[in-house]
């Protein structure tokens, strides 16, 4: 007989439903008001328009920001995934003293206030005489992306059958050859998943970009600048909606790939478990 549980499922499902509404509702207002004719976001809605979207490609500053975001996002995703692969492989494959401490240090940016991470990096970069640019933004984004990359990759690498690699080595492959021809194909979905997650984080990240950029804006910095002008709000809502859709798409693909990777290595439990 199964034990009776505290709180019947019925009440909890209702609560779960309300909670999901609470999570999603605020975000849904952005797309709703981005297709409304009125320039201020308030009820009742006045009418349907795509005007705010049509204006977006005619804004040079926005196109520059989008291009900057793309460059920063791709560079940050590649760099942090490479560093993430090395670290995740080391953590899941080898046992050595200090492993947990090193892991903790690499994961630390996840739980530190972003402002403090940002200003400390800013201080060092200014001391080193590095001029602030998109490059310094990439450096900052890589630091905060590595923990996410590690999480995704560890779940893909764990439970990986070592005997496959050993078989390959026994058959005469070099260590690198084994990695390229045996390990890599197995974990490829996890790697692509990590690239997508890191790109999305970089695309959406504001604080570190805000502190570490010179004169070039990324999309969130552009949005921040526009927020001062009430008349620009509908355009910002339209742009925000596009960013939301991009993030959701990328993260859904990433999650599907990650699950496939986890299934391949027969590893249950997910990104979060």
């Amino acid at each position: 007989m199964r034990a009776r549980r505290f709180l019947p499922g019925g009440w909890l499902s209702t609560y779960a439903f309300l909670y999901i509404v609470f999570l999603y509702l605020p975000v849904i207002f952005l797309p709703v008001f981005s297709i409304n004719t009125a320039a201020t976001p308030k009820f009742p809605l006045t009418g349907f328009t795509l005007q705010w979207y049509e204006d977006l490609p005619r804004t040079p500053a926005l196109l520059d920001a989008a291009w900057n975001s793309l460059i920063v996002g791709v560079s940050a995703a590649i760099l942090s995934t490479v560093l993430g692969i090395l670290a995740a492989r080391s953590i899941t494959r080898y046992r050595y003293p200090g492993r947990r401490a090193i892991n903790g240090l690499i994961m630390a940016p996840l739980v530190l206030p972003e402002v403090i991470v940002a200003i400390s990096m800013l201080l060092v970069m200014l001391q080193l005489g590095l001029s602030l640019s998109l490059f310094t933004v990439v450096l900052g984004h890589v630091l905060i992306c590595i923990p996410y990359s590690m999480t995704v990759l560890t779940s893909g690498f764990e439970g990986f059958d070592r005997s496959l690699e050993e078989a390959s080595a026994d058959l005469g492959e070099s260590a690198f050859g084994t990695f390229r021809r045996v390990t890599l194909p197995m974990v490829a979905p996890a790697i692509i998943s990590s690239l997508l997650v890191c790109f999305t984080i970089s695309l959406d990240e504001f604080i570190i970009a805000f502190f570490l950029t010179g004169t070039e804006a990324t999309l969130p910095i552009y949005i921040w600048g526009q927020l001062r002008f009430a008349s620009k709000l509908p355009g910002v809502l339209a742009l925000g909606t596009l960013l939301l859709v991009a993030s959701l798409l990328l993260m859904t693909i990433a999650e599907m790939l990650r699950r496939r990777a986890a299934r391949r290595t027969q590893n249950e439990g997910g990104l979060y478990a």
């Binding site: 993430g84 090395l86 080898y94 050595y96 240090l105 991470v117 400390s120 060092v124």
Partner: peptide, 25 residues
């Protein structure tokens, strides 16, 4: 231990230079 440590050292170095050093500064 040596292989594992060698493998993680680039990432560790990155965290040391861009997180630990800045906090010390």
């Amino acid at each position: 231990p040596v292989q594992g440590f060698a493998l993680i050292s680039p990432t560790l170095l990155y965290a040391l230079i861009l997180l630990v050093l800045p906090i010390l500064v």
